[in-house]
Write a protein that binds this DNA or RNA. Structure first.
Lengths: 193, 193
DNA sequence: AAAAATACGGAACAATCGTTCCCGAATTAA
DNA sequence: TTAATTCGGGAACGATTGTTCCGTATTTTT
């Protein structure tokens, strides 16, 4: 008995991810959202609550999509080391191509908001733990298959890899476009594989 | 023939560094500045221009102090590898002690502002280049002295080290307090020395 | 002692912030 | 067709934003 929505909720959320990712929480105004999401103020608030709730929804959406992609790549791959290489080369490619250098939405939010907002802090913390678990599992698998060196224990290597991933994303956000810089980092990192 | 300032400009700038470092640019209001810097609105604007200018001044101040400290440590040290160890252990210590987890002002600003503000982008970019140069020089020295492995060329290692430094600062900003996480990262990283 | 110059506190500014509300339009169920 | 419901556009809200300006206090120079 009601009028149908004129917008697709999923598509609007995708756009919300894009704009918050690009401009951050404080850098994005309600007007920005109305303009770029393509719906009215009232619909925005009726559908997604307030700005804070929309941001959290967007960040969780980004997190899930990113995690799923990584998990899929690592679990389906025959050669774990090769899968890691692919993940990092992809990150570098995005950094170099990305005309508006968005970096990583999770890293950005972590730096901007984690210390001022408990809910964001929990999302960031959970994300790190999940990624650590995913990497750990993959590294173990790779070590058992003889694809990854056992010089370092799996957890140490997993944490180390995640740290370099964060670093690369910061570089990207800062607009670094020199491929050699990224390649050097990866070259060094992969020696420990 | 004029009245004397009731505040010490250097001390006020130190406080400005603290507050911008802690809350970021967008997160710090003019009222925050007036309240915490301990001077009036008019004095603030008369002395430092506007918010943007004060922020840039604060960030440059932080940059200079940080760079000087690192340069001094690396140049004065007999054992470069030991100096690097000290720099990173200090960063970890700060991350663990830091009750309000400020991370690194340069990394924070890079993520929050670099892509939206050319002047900040240049500061961040210059900082990276300078740090790369400093690290490079130190690594070369260490390699020549037989303190650092020559398995990797100096520039590659310098970039790799800087990347891990960024990563650790993001971890700190996110409030990570598990020492083992940092230690694992350092353990892996230093293998390449 | 008078004049010049600057610092200071605080009121006030316009602009923008996130948010709410109202109302006509549109859609569906009865 | 009517009633119920939800849509979307836009006006409007109070609060806060960064910034300016004015009057007074204070200090230094002549």
């Amino acid at each position: 008995m009601a009028r149908t929505k004129e917008f697709n909720e999923d598509k609007v959320l995708d756009k919300a991810v894009e704009i918050f990712w690009h401009k951050g929480y404080n850098g994005t105004s309600a007007q920005d959202l109305v303009t770029h999401l393509g719906l009215s103020r009232s619909s925005l608030y009726d559908t997604f609550g307030d700005k804070q709730k929309l941001f959290v929804t967007a960040l969780k959406r980004y997190q899930k999509q990113g995690q799923d992609a990584v998990i899929k790549l690592l679990e389906e791959s025959e050669d774990v080391k090769e899968a890691f290489t692919q993940i990092f080369k992809q990150a570098v490619l995005e950094s170099l191509e990305d005309r508006i250098t968005k970096g990583c939405f999770m890293v950005n939010s972590s730096v901007e908001l984690a210390m001022h907002d408990e809910e964001i802090a929990k999302i960031v913390s959970d994300n790190r733990q999940t990624m650590e678990d995913v990497f750990l599992k993959a590294v173990k698998k790779g070590q058992e298959a003889g694809q990854i060196s056992t010089k370092l224990d799996a957890l140490t290597l997993a944490r180390f890899v995640f740290n370099n991933y964060s670093g690369i994303r910061v570089l990207a956000r800062a607009g670094e476009k020199n491929k050699q810089v990224y390649d050097d980092i990866l070259k060094a990192m992969f020696i420990l594989f």
